[in-house]
């Protein structure tokens, strides 16, 4: 049951990325290129996604436990620290170089492997490198 629901949520996410145009790295880079051929479409992705997610979050807060799992596991750290800012800074540079963040990279691995496969290998390497350095 959990697996099927998870498959469904992943399908919604992947279908949404594809429909939204986020699976096209050029479109993502054009969104960031505010001084060039700016394509503001991705603002509409956020504007579509966030209100729906807010409702889900609020409904979750109304319950003692989620519907499927038996406990809520939402990050509870509140402090903004250097790791958060430096990590996000590094992420932004990588995103701006490639036009790909993790979700769209997975969503396109079968569609445009010539672009995505090498990126995914490097993505996994970066994630594992973090694990090595910060035990």
């Amino acid at each position: 049951m959990i697996q099927i629901i998870s498959l469904l949520l992943g399908s919604l996410f992947g279908g949404g990325l594809y429909l939204a145009g986020m699976t096209n790295p050029k479109k993502v880079l054009n969104f960031m290129d505010i001084m060039g051929n700016w394509d503001p479409s991705l603002i509409f992705v956020m504007a579509g996604a966030i209100p729906v997610a807010v409702i889900g979050y609020r409904l979750m807060l109304c319950r003692a436990v989620p519907i499927i799992f038996n406990s809520i596991q939402i990050p509870s750290i509140a402090a903004v620290d250097a790791r958060l800012v430096i990590g996000s800074l590094i992420f932004g540079v990588g995103w701006g170089i490639s036009g790909l963040c993790p979700g769209p990279a997975f969503a396109t691995v079968l569609i445009q492997p010539q672009v995505t496969a090498v990126y995914l290998v490097a993505l996994i390497a970066g994630s594992l490198a973090y694990k090595q350095f910060h035990r």
């Binding site: 629901i5 998870s6 469904l8 949520l9 992943g10 919604l12 996410f13 279908g15 949404g16 990325l17 594809y18 429909l19 939204a20 145009g21 986020m22 096209n24 050029k26 479109k27 054009n30 051929n37 394509d39 503001p40 479409s41 991705l42 509409f44 992705v45 956020m46 504007a47 579509g48 996604a49 966030i50 209100p51 729906v52 997610a53 409702i55 889900g56 979050y57 409904l59 979750m60 319950r63 436990v65 989620p66 519907i67 499927i68 799992f69 406990s71 809520i72 596991q73 939402i74």
Partner: peptide, 27 residues
């Protein structure tokens, strides 16, 4: 690239539904 407000917003809603389910079903 073409400006696609409608398909991007619809795609965003699907992504939002995934996050919605993640919160409400999985916490």
């Amino acid at each position: 690239t073409e400006f696609t407000p409608i398909s991007s917003a619809l795609g965003g809603i699907l992504i939002g539904l995934s996050a919605f389910g993640g919160f409400l079903l999985f916490g």
